[in-house]
Design a binder for these strands. Structure first.
Lengths: 192, 192
DNA sequence: ACCAAAAAGTGACCGCGGTCAATTAAAATT
DNA sequence: AATTTTAATTGACCGCGGTCACTTTTTGGT
């Protein structure tokens, strides 16, 4: 069996990823065209699709990597003691997720994988995110009537909602931070 | 000024919508091709795009209409007295929203409109949904430490989350109903 | 009834994601 | 070293959403 992958493959993949990163640096995620990427990488179009199932898979990879970077930062933080602290801790990630409408759409599309086999980078980060928040909540329980895991799922749901409403003209009076703060307070420290 | 729209226009529009409905009835939303629709309607391709900004606008219209139908049913219901009753009341809508992965994606993409002018049918239904739930909550408060409006926003966030996780292999042990039931109980009737 | 202006409709064309039979390069076998 | 086998790459091609200069139809004014 040994090495089934050739170095050539890795080199091509690196060229493609570097080219994609450069294209995105110039025009953002939405403006990325596969044809631009392959031209820049100096390979044929078909080669791209031998490395990535489709354009979405490339986005999944790149955006997933970026989310992971933010999660590294978040995981290194001490467990927040209040819902306000938790809001602050989650904000950098939320800011990235909302940097482009297209990026947010890609994230939502990939947040859950239909089949066990197809769990991609972004879906992985959602699992990781849930774990990080669950660990926080296990350390410093905000409310005790429901499990930390359930609370973490709620935190995720509210983060999505806060970002969604930021893109909505009917509800854009509050910033993501302000809205998330209100949600988390109501969810993690109910007063009745 | 008088009538700027000709009957011809309405007739063509009807033909397009009927054709689209027929195509969807045969192969579902995801399989809809604009070319099939115009062929069936007996008009040219360009005509389609004179009536709908793009394919997404057609989907927005058709799916929005379907959601509205469900909201009519829901609005006619008496205000639920428990979170379990609310879950039951919302389930038919949730079932439609999750009938196809593609449909759910379209709904998420259109749930908020970027500009005030561009509020489409689906975005309207989200406003209406929020209003219906807010009215319920105002009648029979579940918790009183936060506003009915805020509670309604949370209900929406959890409904989305419950559907999302149904499409996710990592979390598909529970049905939408079971998961939504747990969420709403924790959100509307916290015990601490 | 006639004509000019406005509205509606047409279809060849383009952009771009994605495919696949053919080609080339690398590894395995003799 | 020559040959077979397997992996990687290529680019012409396709499908389908979307555009636009042009034609046809309707309308409103005279």
């Amino acid at each position: 069996m040994a090495k089934a992958v050739q170095q050539r493959t890795l080199k091509t993949r690196t060229k493609l990823l570097d080219a994609a990163t450069a294209v995105i640096a110039e025009g953002g995620y939405e403006a990325l065209r596969v044809e631009d990427v392959v031209k820049r990488a100096g390979v044929a179009k078909g080669t791209f699709f031998a490395h990535f199932k489709d354009k979405d898979a490339l986005m999944d990879h790149l955006i997933g990597k970026e989310i992971d970077r933010h999660l590294d930062q978040i995981a290194a933080l001490p467990a927040p003691r209040t819902s306000a602290e938790m809001t602050d801790a989650l904000m950098p990630l939320a800011a990235f997720m909302s940097c482009e409408r297209y990026v947010f759409d890609v994230i939502l599309r990939h947040s859950g994988a239909a089949a066990q086999r197809e769990i991609g980078p972004i879906a992985m980060t959602f699992g990781r995110h849930e774990q990080v928040v669950t660990d926080w909540l296990a350390q410093r329980p905000f409310r005790t009537d429901i499990s930390a895991q359930l609370q973490a799922e709620g935190v995720q749901a509210f983060a999505i909602q806060a970002i969604s409403l930021m893109f909505c003209s009917l509800h854009n009076s509050l910033s993501i931070r302000e809205r998330l703060q209100v949600y988390l307070a109501a969810w993690l420290t109910p007063q009745s």
